[in-house]
Design a protein around this nucleic acid. Structure first.
Lengths: 227, 227
DNA sequence: AAGAAATGTGAGCCGCTACTCACACCACTA
DNA sequence: TAGTGGTGTGAGTAGCGGCTCACATTTCTT
């Protein structure tokens, strides 16, 4: 639990230009090639820094990787959080998030790819800690928000806040991957056809429809419809 | 597009015992360690076969990996498809799928882990082909099924079949990962607490509630509620 | 100014592992 | 029995890449 730090002290003291160059090069390589196929010597060269210095900053390749991930998710969170206003209703918030995700798929795709990469880490790689750091914020944000909406009567009252927050996040997280990561892109194409990437409105409309109904109607309504 | 084959002819002629041993060992190692950290020499030893023979069966490590993935997803599909009856209504089908997924998280977790592993492949690794092979079946099954349900009036009429099939699959796929892969398990815990793994009914109930509403209610209903 | 401490370098070490290959064995065929 | 072609072996190779370390340079301290 003890908040492990994944860089040496020298990295805190490093010149900002070096810090940035190293992180930029790392994020680029790791997001494109993945943890094990990325090459430290290449990253160092691209960052305009010696391998030796890199190893003054980080104990191992893995530590460096995790530091890059932390940086990337921080950036992603800023992009995403930036677009939603705390007063927004659930559906407005959802729409803004969807549109932000669609916009992120271009230039900022490397952050999403890195995020996707950590998704397969296992226990000994520190999956638990990372998950807590990366998902923690959205988990509690969504839970709180949905709980508030439930209490104020904006959405159905018979839902398990935590679970519904989980489903909500699941749809948006996968959407993010579906716009950026190769495998997920293919999957989306298989379901919806190649044109889906040229028709953002279709996705916005249908996903909102799906979410809106899921969050609005109580089980009682279902019963009522059944006969 | 040309249906590449990922094994040499010798593999087709191999004794079933060797075939099975090799695939079993491969699936075990690849699912636990991932494509690049798994060790071919170790796999050969575990399978009780020489490295040389392995390379009579497969051109490269990557080809061997993909063959393992194909085998794993075939098995997974059988498990999953086996539980749903073609006459089932959408909700019944969903419930059976959720329960099958919860059951799979034990002994068969290695298949799911392998499936999760391919999720990060990119273009040059053959992501497109694999996606088509792996997701193709569920994509068309779900689409057809939902389309039928829509026409027969079982579910809302105003939905885009392809998109809703995509959302449906997204929820179930992620659920599968959430019960088996370390990172996704942590994520689920973060949203719903540690007890979620001891309370399968809670998941079944809430996810069904979510899906039921999403698939049942038309936009018109929303408008009606709003004033 | 002198010394200590930190920053920075990059050629090269060395461990690891994907893959090879020369050879042995076996099953046919003629 | 000699020849062909497949099956099976596993010690060995080759090369890749993570990481080190001896050394140079700058910065801080006194």
């Amino acid at each position: 639990m003890g908040e492990r730090v994944y860089h040496k002290e020298a990295f805190d003291r490093a010149k900002p230009e070096y810090r940035d160059a190293v992180l930029t090069a790392g994020i680029a390589e790791f997001s494109e090639l993945g943890l094990e196929k990325a090459n430290i010597n290449v990253i160092a060269k691209k960052a305009g820094v010696s391998v030796g210095l890199l190893y003054k900053y980080f104990e191992t390749k893995e530590d460096f990787f995790i530091t890059c991930v932390e940086e990337a998710t921080k950036t992603l969170e800023e992009i995403i959080d930036g677009v939603v206003n705390s007063d927004d209703k659930l559906l407005v918030r959802a729409e803004k998030l969807i549109r932000a995700i669609q916009a992120t798929s271009g230039a900022d795709s490397k952050y999403v790819k890195l995020y996707n990469e950590i998704t397969r880490l296992s226990g000994n790689d520190g999956a638990a800690e990372l998950a807590a750091k990366v998902e923690g914020l959205s988990a509690s944000t969504y839970r709180n928000f949905i709980e508030a909406a439930r209490k104020s009567g904006d959405i159905r009252s018979d839902c398990d806040t935590a679970m519904f927050a989980f489903f909500f996040d699941t749809l948006l997280m996968t959407l993010q991957f579906s716009y950026t990561c190769d495998y997920y892109r293919e999957r989306l194409k298989l379901f919806c056809g190649d044109d889906i990437f040229g028709d953002d409105e279709r996705m916005v409309k249908e996903l909102l429809k799906f979410i809106e109904s899921a969050f609005t109607f109580e089980h009682a309504d279902v019963k009522r419809l059944e006969h």
